[in-house]
Structures are given as structure tokens and as C-alpha cells.
Simulated assay, not measured.
Amino acid sequence: MKSRLLALAGAATLTAALTATAPALAQDAAAPDIPLANVKAHLSQFQSIATANGGNRAHGSPGYRASLDYVKAKLDAAGYQTAIQSFSYNGATGYNLIADWPGGDPNQILMAGAHLDGVRAGAGINDNASGSAAVLETALAVARSGYRPAKHLRFGWWGAEELGLIGSSRYVSALPAAERTKIKGYLNYDMIGSPNAGYFVYDGDNSDGVGAGPGPAGSAEIERTINAYFTGIGVPTRGTDFDGRSDYGPFIRAGIPAGGTFTGAEGRKTTAQAQLWGGQAGVAFDRCYHASCDSTANINDTALDRNADSIAHTIWALAGGA
């Protein structure tokens, strides 16, 4: 997650509801459990890649490209249609990876993504190998489950987020207007295993009345769907504003509904939050934020497991199908 706030432009309104083409709930397939061991195996691979490539996976580094190649190989083997998009920034070449699951209504696309780059200081495991690994494992679960979603599923791994949402901005800006309107929702996962975790859901309806305001029409439906999962497992959540710190930014500026989860960065957990979720009051959600200690030791397994399962729940619920 980048540390510099970006100003958000006004978002256009989309009138299509996320569930417009989904079959009746009784016919929907149930989301699978996402194995924590599988997600952590991906984290170990990202750590090994960083260790072998100068200690990081930052934009323009060999560690970033090796990370992208690792994800692409997994998706290709599972039957995804993958594409690498290159761009230049700060004198270096960056890459996005886009993966489409065959089938589903091509005019009704549900997308999930995470930034794959880290900062130069370290391996970037919570920020953001955690989101990248969980989105990858959910995509692999789609393939091995035989799931036939009603909507078309697309997944993205973004480059150069840490430098200002560069990769995701390039992706959205390059889409023709007709292709943008086909994307009925974007789910963003950035830092979902913070050691002193909170359980934050992007506030699609601006229910607290403060901050950056609601997302485009349909964002509230995403928020409700995510919250339903956490309510079902007895974990309370709190809203977090669309403040421009992660890759949902370019999507909501384009009028695309967005949502996702976040477990906290450099902010300190309050006493009330510690009473709500446990952990240490007065301590950062992630004390290793943008630091060399953001390694595989810098992960809360419970938070990572719950958030990974929430990704599957949200995709299965919003995409419909059998």
C-alpha cells in the first residue's frame, strides 16, 4: 500500500446492479474454503524470490519480474488466459498481469486484484504479497472447483502501486469506454495479514458520513456482501474510506463499483479497536510497514485466513453461477 494519498476525482454513476444477471440465490454455488497452507506457500515463494533478487520485489527489479512470472505460471497451468501488460515509469519497465477465466457473460465482468510490487526496503510480504497470494489462490480455487460463474471473472496483479497506483491507472486508462462499462465490480486486496490486525471493509455507502464519500453505485452491494461473510463467522468489521491509497482508486474514478478488505498499515490500533478485535492498543497494525522486517514472519495467520476466505465468498456471491 502506497503511503502518499492521492486526490480522488468525482466518480461517474453506474446504474447496473452487481447482481443483475446472477441466478437465484438457491441455485448459486457455495464458495470453497481457501486453504491457508496454500496461501502461505505462495508467501514463502515470494520471500524466496526477494531473497534471491537483492532483498525486494520493487518496481523495475528482477524480484518483481520473477514474482510476476511465478503467478503467471500458476495461472497458465490452471487454464487461465493470461496477458502481461508493460509500461514505463521512472526509467524502468513495469508490468501488470491480467488473467481471465474462460466463460461467463463477457458483458458482466467481476474483477479482483492486488498489487504485486513492494518497496525497496524489504520483501514486501504483508504489503502486498498477502493480497497477491490470496487472490492467486482464490483464482486457482475457481479452476479446481469446477465453478461456472454467471459473470466473467478477471483477476489482476498490479505493478508500481507503491509509486502512485501506476500499473492499475495505466490498465484502467487504456480500456475503451465500452470495456470499462462491462466491469461491474472491482475487489481490491492490499495488506490482509497485518500482525496487529484490524478487520476493515471499504465503505462503499459512506455509512459513517465522513471521509472520501461513497463509491460508485454498486459499491455498497460489495460492502454488504463482504460484511455478510464476516458476520457469519462472528468477526465484527469497521468501514475504511476510499482515500486513494490503493488500486481501487483508478476504478472508482472511472465509475466502476469497488470494495475489498484491509487489515491496517502504519496507523496505531486504538483501545476500542483492541477491545473489538484483540491485539495491542497503541501499536501499529503493521509495525513493519515499508520496512525490512516485512517478511514471512510479519503475518497474522488468522487474519490472512479469514480474509482469503472472504475473497472467495465475495466472488462466488457476486458472480453467481453454479
Results as ranks from 00 to 15, higher is better:
residue 128 N to I: 05
residue 204 G to K: 01
residue 154 R to G: 00
residue 74 K to R: 14
residue 222 I to G: 07
residue 257 P to R: 04
residue 105 D to N: 15
residue 171 Y to F: 14
residue 22 A to F: 00
residue 43 L to F: 14
residue 118 G to A: 15
residue 288 C to Y: 05
residue 264 G to I: 10
residue 125 I to M: 11
residue 301 D to S: 14
residue 15 T to A: 09
residue 131 G to R: 11
residue 210 V to S: 14
residue 64 Y to M: 13
residue 68 L to I: 15
residue 235 V to R: 13
residue 207 S to I: 10
residue 117 D to E: 08
residue 63 G to W: 03
residue 312 A to S: 06
residue 137 E to T: 14
residue 229 Y to H: 02
residue 245 R to S: 07
residue 239 G to Q: 09
residue 219 S to E: 06
residue 166 I to M: 03
residue 152 H to M: 05
residue 112 A to R: 06
residue 211 G to I: 12
residue 255 G to D: 10
residue 64 Y to H: 15
residue 96 N to D: 07
residue 204 G to Q: 01
residue 274 A to W: 02
residue 315 I to S: 00
residue 313 H to M: 02
residue 85 Q to G: 05
residue 38 N to D: 13
residue 34 I to F: 09
residue 239 G to H: 09
residue 108 Q to H: 15
residue 181 T to D: 09
residue 321 G to D: 02
residue 113 G to M: 04
residue 6 L to G: 11
residue 37 A to S: 15
residue 209 G to T: 11
residue 100 D to H: 08
residue 151 K to R: 15
residue 228 A to H: 03
residue 100 D to F: 00
residue 25 L to I: 08
residue 176 P to N: 00
residue 121 A to N: 14
residue 6 L to P: 03
residue 236 P to I: 12
residue 146 G to K: 08
residue 203 D to R: 02
residue 36 L to H: 09
residue 18 L to V: 03
residue 251 F to L: 04
residue 99 A to Q: 05
residue 51 T to F: 02
residue 86 S to H: 13
residue 321 G to K: 05
residue 110 L to V: 14
residue 300 N to S: 06
residue 12 A to D: 11
residue 183 I to Y: 01
residue 284 A to E: 14
residue 269 K to W: 04
residue 202 Y to W: 14
residue 32 P to H: 09
residue 237 T to L: 08
residue 158 W to R: 02
residue 269 K to R: 10
residue 220 A to Q: 13
residue 28 D to Y: 00
residue 181 T to N: 09
residue 228 A to P: 01
residue 27 Q to G: 11
residue 228 A to N: 10
residue 234 G to Y: 03
residue 172 V to Y: 05
residue 236 P to D: 11
residue 296 T to A: 09
residue 255 G to V: 01
residue 174 A to M: 11
residue 218 G to V: 10
residue 253 R to I: 04
residue 278 G to K: 10
residue 4 R to L: 15
residue 114 A to G: 10
residue 17 A to R: 15
residue 270 T to V: 09
residue 45 Q to M: 08
residue 24 A to W: 00
residue 201 V to T: 14
residue 296 T to Q: 06
residue 149 P to C: 04
residue 162 E to T: 08
residue 172 V to D: 07
residue 18 L to C: 05
